[in-house]
């Protein structure tokens, strides 16, 4: 499955648009990571626990989007956009959405 955030896939011809596909996930970390983040906050800088959380979440969102596209029988997902929102303390929602397309065989 090819994923891009431009309108086409370079080198391929799109013959059919299969519609919107999207995947989202809400993830939180266990309280230990939050306590770690609290102590990291004494000196600032990168908060690794949260970086991991958001990267894992984003991967999962993209995976879910890809699965949806596979069900539709798509070859690629183009024009992918990402959104993040913080739902509550310690949890974040990741969302990825795009257009599923089919190539010329």
């Amino acid at each position: 499955m090819i994923i891009t955030n431009i309108e086409q896939v370079p080198g391929k011809t799109i013959i059919q648009e299969l519609g919107l596909v999207q995947g989202s996930t809400v993830r939180g970390k266990h309280i230990g990571k939050d306590i770690g983040a609290f102590f990291k906050g004494l000196v600032g800088g990168e908060i690794k626990g949260y970086s991991e959380l958001l990267i894992e979440g984003r991967e999962e969102a993209i995976e879910r989007m890809t699965k949806e596209a596979e069900v539709l029988g798509a070859d690629a997902v183009v024009n992918v956009r990402m959104a993040t929102s913080s739902i509550t303390g310690g949890a974040a929602e990741m969302m990825a959405y795009g257009t599923a397309v089919k190539f010329e065989p």
């Binding site: 939050d34 908060i47 993040t84 913080s86 303390g89 310690g90 974040a92």
Partner: peptide, 10 residues
């Protein structure tokens, strides 16, 4: 994005 944990805002 603004991320807020239980204790820390990042």
């Amino acid at each position: 994005n603004s991320v807020s944990g239980r204790f820390l805002h990042a």
